[in-house]
Amino acid sequence: MSENVVEVRGLVTRFGSHTVHDGLDLDLKRGEILGVVGGSGTGKSVLLRTIVGLLKPAAGQVRVLGQDIETLSPPAREALERRWGVMFQDGALFSALNVRENVEAPLRAVPDLGPEQRRALAELKVSMAGLPWNANDKMPSDLSGGMRKRAGLARALALDPEILFLDEPTAGLDPIGADAFDRLIVELRDALDLSVFLVTHDLDTLHACCDRIAVLAERKVLATGTMADMLKIDHPWVHEYFHGPRARAALTTGRSKESPDGNQG
């Protein structure tokens, strides 16, 4: 299976005179977890926002699930947008709603879905994201950073998307929490048949869950490939990134790529 669910071709994004991407190409294949890495400010978040249509590219083409979001009519665009889920860096939960209501929000778009079913589904997603039952009634402000991320993930999963976009899902989590989150992503990918676009700085996450890695530098995708491929590239930044002390530590401790069949509750 190597159908591309996301295809970016010749992407150029600019803010005023500041060019963030210049002729960037990137593919996300169906069923894979693609890790996107790059230094701070290389435009990883901007790339994610461009793919999901929050930013307009200056030039180039973005095709998601075979459709170009720029050219779609508003209803078709809405229908396309429901086929992906986005988890923003800090969860981006609606602060006036509790966790369950946050997850219910996208479900409200479904006609003929009764309130009880909606509630049951939302609670299922909350549980799938690894939150305990009592988190349902909590307000976002009462959650820890990791719980907010899980709640954001639950909301992104509400409509069973085909593509999941994650912006630094493990940033700011403790190693155990980050580890659990990595496993959760792999598990969900396997169970829900997701394709995952994962922006991260976390080398452990790259090791633990990514099938392929794309390195963003010099305004384009410098290289894509597996972890093993990355280790062979001798571009200075890429070399530094994958051979630095942290990278070595991550390699040697080697959280296994094969996720143990977790009994995540």
Binding site: S127, D190, A191
Partner: peptide, 18 residues
């Protein structure tokens, strides 16, 4: 089989209310 897997995954994570 893929659908079976999803069904099992959901069965595992159906929340039990406090």
């Amino acid at each position: 089989p893929t659908h079976e897997r999803l069904l099992e995954a959901v069965r595992k994570s159906v929340p039990t209310p406090d």
